[in-house]
Simulated scan of single mutants.
Amino acid sequence: MEIRVSGAGPAAPFFSARDVFEPSHDLDLPVDVHIRSNPDERTWAGHYDDHHVLNISQQAATSVMARELALHEFAHMHRHERGHPSHTLSMDEVLFLALTGREVEQRVLTHCYQIANHVKDIYADDITLSVGPTDKLRSFLESELAAAIADQPADRQQAGHRLTAGADPSMTAVNAAFALALLERHDAIPGDHRLYDLAHAAGQDAPEIDVDGFRRRFATLGPDPDESDCRRGLVDTIRTYADAQTTTTGPAAD
């Protein structure tokens, strides 16, 4: 597995991630790691005919999660190379099928893409959590969810519109469901963990979202779906979320 690192940042986390990844999995194509100075770029992967690209911010590359983030992206690359339908289906096609006949706000459309990415992340992290430790990820998910809940607005108009910037309550509730489902798939969370209390709080902030329902959807994703099953599951999950958003104020997207 060939890795080439460029940019102002440490190379060690990426080679360490490779050493953890390689005994069980491998990549056919080389990986170009680009460490970026812009912290808003965070971490994302690109796939090309002759290589993969891992873009990561300098802030993330120097964090305690650097190795785990690299492992996660390597897992996405592996799923892409092996043609897993969660990583090869056209998300534009999936959203078209899910939202036909519906008008949704732009923010809801953005959330639908995020939900599709959660499905990709579940399948990538089925690999990540099979080769790496779970403690850091569990703590990271707990911290992120707690921060999002703390960012909820204190006041809302009677119609339910946001008065202040911050985390969107509906998406925070889905994120809570995703976090629980991911850890439950790998028996990586005790029944009394604080994440369950946080997920309950997130659900109270967004009563239109069935947190437990989304948790079950994510937790029970089949390990080896064919393209039709994967498409059907994505369409149903995204449609469920869109239909839970009963207000359509502001610019809508078809």
Rank of each mutant, 00 (worst) to 15 (best):
G203C: 02
K136C: 08
V5Y: 00
D50K: 13
Y48T: 11
L97A: 15
A219V: 02
S170A: 15
D205V: 08
G7S: 06
P39S: 03
L137A: 08
C230I: 02
R107S: 14
A70C: 08
S170V: 06
H193P: 00
V94H: 06
P39F: 04
C112T: 10
L27K: 05
E73K: 05
Y113T: 10
V20C: 07
D50H: 14
T240W: 10
I122V: 13
M65N: 12
H52S: 05
L180I: 11
T88H: 13
A17G: 02
A177T: 04
R231W: 03
D121R: 11
G132E: 11
E68R: 12
R156H: 13
D49E: 14
A242Q: 06
S37G: 12
T43R: 11
V53F: 08
D49C: 13
Y241C: 04
G9Q: 03
Q114Y: 09
G250D: 05
A12D: 14
D125R: 14
E81D: 09
D187L: 01
A8L: 07
I115P: 02
E227F: 07
T247H: 11
K120W: 06
T164L: 13
R239P: 05
H78T: 10
G250E: 05
R185P: 00
E184H: 09
V174P: 02
V33Q: 03
G213K: 03
T100W: 09
H186S: 01
T237N: 01
S6A: 13
L71M: 02
H47D: 12
N117F: 07
Q204Y: 09
Q59V: 15
V53L: 11
L54Q: 00
E68S: 14
V31Y: 04
A244G: 15
D50E: 14
M1E: 09
I127Y: 03
L198F: 03
M171Y: 12
A61F: 05
R18N: 11
I189E: 00
A176K: 02
E68K: 08
V108L: 05
L29W: 07
V64S: 10
D168P: 04
A66I: 00
R215N: 04
T220P: 08
M1N: 08
G101L: 03
E2Q: 14
D28M: 09
V108W: 04
D19I: 03
A70G: 07
P133H: 10
H76I: 07
E93Q: 13
V104K: 09
D236Y: 07
M77W: 01
V174M: 04
A206Q: 01
R18F: 07
D32Q: 15
P251Y: 06
D155Y: 14
R4D: 13
P153G: 11
H25E: 06
G160Y: 00
L221G: 00
A219H: 11
A75Q: 05
P23G: 01
D32N: 12
F74W: 08
N175D: 14
I149D: 06
E208A: 15
G7F: 05
H111R: 01
L129E: 05
D126K: 01
I35V: 12
V174T: 04
A11D: 13
C112P: 05
K136P: 06
A199P: 01
G132T: 14
A124N: 02
L183E: 01
A159M: 10
T128K: 02
V108Y: 02
E227K: 12
R36L: 15
A202D: 08
D243F: 05
D243H: 08
Q106F: 10
T134W: 07
